[in-house]
Nucleic acid binder design. Structure first.
Length: 257
DNA sequence: AGAACCGCCTGCTTGC
DNA sequence: TGCAAGCAGGCGGTTC
C-alpha cells in the first residue's frame, strides 16, 4: 500500500513526466470519481506531495488532489488501452496517466489550490514544537499515533512498525509516556527509514508499483512487518503480531520495550 | 475533548 | 472442489 516513500516516488516520476504538460482531457470510469471529470486543456504547473496525497497544481487556481488509499496505483502508458480496474484517466499529448484501483478506495478531488501547507511532514517543513504541543501528550498508543495523518503525514502501517522496531520502543506504549530521548529517536529513525524507502523506490510487499509498473526494493529492508513467527534479525527471538485499532502491528517483544 | 469504533470496497486466503 | 466467511487497511465520520 502506498505510504510516504511510495507516493514520493510517484511524485518524482510525475514531475518529470507531466509537469509543464497539458492535460487534454480527463475520463471517469467509476461514478464515485465523477467530480474528477471535465478537466480540459489545463497545464500541470507543479506536482507536490502532501503526506500521502498527490497534489497536481493547475494553471487555473485549481488542483487535482489524488489519494491512493490502499490499492490505488498511477500508471503511465502510451498504448491507449484500459487495463482492469482503471477508474480514471488523465490524457496527455504523448500518453495517459491512469488511476488503477481494484478496491475503489482511492479518491480524486478537484480543489482550490491550497495556500497553507501543513507542517506535520517529517521530510518537509516539520514543526517539532507544534507536534509536542498537540500530539506528544496524548494517551493513545504510539503505533496508532504514528499512523494518525493529523499527527504525522505519510506514515502507514508498514513504516510505523519499522520505525518502532528501530527505536526499540514497544508499540503499545502510550505517547504521553515517552521521554524526550525516545521522541528524538522516533524522529531520527522515521526520517532515516522514510528516506531509505524513497531511495529504494518503495516497498512492494503486495501490489505497489511505480508509474512505469516497476516494483520497489524496500521490502528487503523490512525487519518486522509481515514477519510474524519469524526470527528477529537482531536477537533471534520471535516476531509477534498484535491488533491495535483494528490493524496488525508486528514487533519484537525482546528488542522493543 | 478525546479515544475507540465503523464503513467504505473487493481480491485473496482460510476453513468446512 | 466449491463456496462462504474472514481478512486486509487509510482515513473520515460517527459513537462512546
Amino acid at each position: 500500500m502506498p505510504e510516504l516513500p511510495e507516493v514520493e516516488t510517484l511524485c518524482r516520476q510525475l514531475q518529470v513526466k507531466i509537469a509543464g504538460e497539458v492535460i487534454r482531457e480527463t475520463f471517469v470510469f467509476d461514478e464515485k470519481l465523477e467530480e474528477a471529470g471535465n478537466i480540459r486543456a489545463c497545464v500541470v504547473c507543479a506536482v507536490r506531495r502532501l503526506g500521502k496525497t498527490i497534489l497536481l497544481t493547475l494553471d487555473d487556481r485549481r488542483s487535482i488532489s489524488i489519494h491512493l488509499r490502499m490499492t490505488g496505483r498511477l500508471f503511465w502508458h502510451q498504448d491507449g488501452k484500459r487495463r482492469p480496474y482503471t477508474r480514471w484517466r488523465m490524457s496527455f499529448t504523448d500518453g495517459d496517466v491512469d488511476l488503477v484501483d481494484p478496491r475503489r478506495f482511492a479518491t480524486v478531488r478537484i480543489i482550490s489550490t491550497p495556500q497553507i501547507i501543513p507542517r506535520n511532514d517529517l521530510l518537509a517543513n516539520f514543526d517539532e514544537q507544534e507536534f509536542f504541543e498537540r500530539q506528544a501528550n496524548r494517551k493513545v498508543n504510539i503505533k496508532t499515533l504514528l499512523m494518525n495523518p493529523e499527527a504525522l503525514a505519510g506514515i502507514g502501517n508498514i513504516y510505523a512498525c519499522e520505525i518502532l522496531y528501530r527505536t526499540g520502543i514497544a508499540p503499545y506504549r502510550r505517547a504521553d509516556g515517552l521521554d524526550g530521548k525516545e521522541w528524538k529517536s522516533i524522529f531520527r529513525e522515521a526520517r532515516r527509514i522514510l528516506k531509505k524507502g524513497i531511495e529504494k523506490r518503495g516497498t512492494s510487499i503486495s501490489d505497489w508499483r511505480d508509474l512505469y509498473g516497476c516494483p520497489g526494493e524496500n521490502q528487503k529492508e523490512l525487519k518486522v512487518y509481515g514477519r510474524e513467527d519469524e526470527k528477529c534479525r537482531r536477537c533471534g527471538g520471535v516476531i509477534v503480531r498484535i491488533k491495535q485499532g483494528g490493524r496488525s502491528t508486528f514487533y519484537c517483544p525482546t528488542c522493543q520495550r
